Simulated assay, not measured.
Amino acid sequence: MAGDHPDANGRVQRRVDHRRPCAHPIWSQYLLALYDLTTPAPEVGTVVFYMPGATHEFVLHALDPERLIPKDAPIHGSGYRPLIPPNYGYQFKADSDEAALARVQELVDGIVAQKLSPDADFRSLWNKLLADAYPLVH
């Protein structure tokens, strides 16, 4: 399931709560959050840019199976617990929020179609698919 949840400053965060039992025997639910780095967010402090000119960042976390996000609930306040470190994270450049969403949606579509795994063991494939982005997880 995907949903856009604006925060108090109007920034849109895209959430994908995807159940994929075949990706890992224990971690079957994942959270993908997409952030617009160009909109100030005082509650998170100063954005750290690892890639000059980056406009967006996304992170993909496996979720603790004992603290999942309820279906269709907002991200904040749901009590979920992502596993740390994230499976993936990238900063990248996009011409607009819509272009960034479309790029991330392609990854989600690949996961749903079981052509791309959210499991961290596939980092080299993700890095090839996102060769123009800066990987935040090494």
Rank of each mutant, 00 (worst) to 15 (best):
M1H: 15
M1S: 11
G3K: 09
D4A: 08
D4G: 06
H5E: 12
P6D: 03
D7E: 03
D7W: 06
N9D: 07
N9P: 00
N9S: 07
N9H: 15
N9T: 12
G10L: 05
R15V: 10
V16S: 10
V16G: 02
D17S: 04
D17G: 02
H18I: 14
R20F: 11
C22S: 14
H24V: 11
I26V: 15
Y30R: 04
L31H: 07
L32C: 07
L32A: 05
A33W: 04
L34K: 00
L37R: 00
T39V: 15
T39N: 03
P40F: 00
P40S: 01
P40Y: 00
P42I: 07
P42G: 04
E43S: 10
V44R: 11
V48P: 00
F49I: 05
G53P: 01
A54H: 00
H56C: 05
H56N: 04
H56S: 01
H56Y: 01
E57H: 01
V59A: 12
L60D: 03
H61R: 06
H61M: 08
A62C: 06
L63E: 06
R67A: 15
L68R: 14
P70C: 05
P70S: 13
D72W: 12
D72V: 07
P74K: 03
I75T: 10
G79P: 02
G79H: 03
P85G: 07
Y88S: 02
Y88G: 01
G89N: 03
G89P: 00
Y90A: 04
Y90G: 02
A94L: 04
D95G: 15
D95V: 11
L101P: 00
L101E: 09
V104I: 04
V104Q: 05
Q105C: 09
L107D: 01
V108E: 04
D109S: 13
D109W: 06
G110Q: 06
G110C: 10
I111K: 00
V112L: 14
A113N: 10
Q114R: 15
S117Q: 05
D121V: 08
D121G: 15
R123Y: 07
R123E: 09
R123Q: 13
R123G: 07
S124H: 09
W126A: 05
W126F: 04
N127I: 07
N127L: 04
L129N: 14
A133L: 03
Y134E: 11
P135Q: 03
P135W: 04
